[in-house]
């Protein structure tokens, strides 16, 4: 088998560059827009949002609070004021609906850093043997809460790269860039997608929020899959795709149900066969199709370059 030039090459040929990067562009737009909304306050004096991702006030009325940070504070023994509780409830509700890890791919600024590291890693074909269990993040999540409980301090927030970066960009970064550089180098040199998909307790927390979220990636057109593996290669959480895409004969439905899926939509972008789309988690019955094992190759031939 001859490998394609890079994942998505075929999709670009079929759909054009723009359509093959539709969700990636939307995502970058969202991440940057959110960051800019926060930064034009101190930068230009336009105060649409005050504060940072830990807690903020939109248009001087709507309070939003990161439920994970607040949970740490509660574990540290504090009973928060109602404003923070309301803010956290709003954020919780939102992510329960759209899937928690939308935070990771559409909001979190560190995602841009780790995506860059990943892109460079692929580009320069950096391989490293070390593997980290992708359950490590849940352990770390538990430990951050335990730390808050035992120290009475929201200790994790003193090193958390996510809040460090966001707070840093808005309030002054100090030496926090070193922590980000650490994350970047770790992802680049030590292990593939190490931070966001294996270690980050923030992502782990939001994963848990997304276990039952209605908004999901669906592989409804999975019988058209031509096994190019592009989706698998670009997916930050590779393990989540296989059941939905290849599980038809095991009786698994076409919905990517794993809460680890970040709803980044990159799989939709790079698939030249339009197998994936955003949809709801309901109606997840394996549709029986006679052609499941019959991979008739309708491809343009681009994959055998």
């Amino acid at each position: 088998m001859i490998m394609p030039l890079h994942p998505g090459a075929e999709a670009i040929q079929n759909k054009g560059w723009l359509l093959a990067h539709k969700w990636l562009l939307a995502r970058r737009f969202s991440q940057l827009a959110i960051l800019i909304l926060f930064m034009i306050g101190p930068g230009l004096g336009i105060w649409l949002v005050k504060g940072n991702l830990s807690s903020n006030l939109v248009l001087d009325t709507l309070p939003l609070t990161d439920p994970y940070v607040l949970l740490q504070s509660i574990f540290a023994g504090h009973t928060p004021e109602t404003t923070a509780m309301i803010g956290a409830a709003i954020v919780l509700g939102f992510y329960l609906l759209v899937s928690g890890r939308v935070y990771c791919s559409w909001v979190c600024p560190v995602n841009m850093v780790t995506d860059l590291a990943h892109w460079l890693r692929e580009r320069f074909n950096i391989k490293s043997a070390s593997t980290i269990s992708n359950n490590s993040r849940y352990w770390l999540l538990a430990i951050t809460l335990l730390l808050a409980f035992t120290t009475g301090n929201v200790a994790w927030e003193m090193v958390n790269p996510v809040s460090m970066m966001h707070r840093g960009l808005i309030f002054g970064i100090g030496m926090a860039w070193t922590i980000l550089l650490g994350v970047f180098l770790f992802d680049l040199l030590v292990s593939r997608r190490a931070w966001c998909s294996h270690l980050c307790p923030v992502g782990a927390f939001y994963s848990l929020l997304g276990t039952h979220s209605p908004l999901r990636i669906r592989a409804d057109a999975r019988e058209q899959c031509n096994d190019c593996m592009d989706c698998f290669l670009v997916c930050p959480e590779q393990q989540v795709i296989r059941p939905a895409l290849k599980g038809a004969d095991k009786g698994i439905g076409p919905v990517v149900t794993s809460a680890n899926c970040t709803n980044c939509g990159r799989c939709i972008d790079v698939c030249s066969k339009d197998v994936f789309h955003f949809g709801l988690r309901f109606n997840n019955k394996p549709v029986h199709n006679k052609n499941i094992h019959n991979h008739t190759d309708h491809s343009t031939g681009a994959e055998v370059l």
Binding site: S54, D66, N153, V154, S163
Partner: peptide, 12 residues
């Protein structure tokens, strides 16, 4: 230290 979530709203 356990109560402040480092949001900076007081600063603003």
């Amino acid at each position: 230290l356990g109560a402040c979530i480092r949001c900076g709203l007081c600063v603003r």
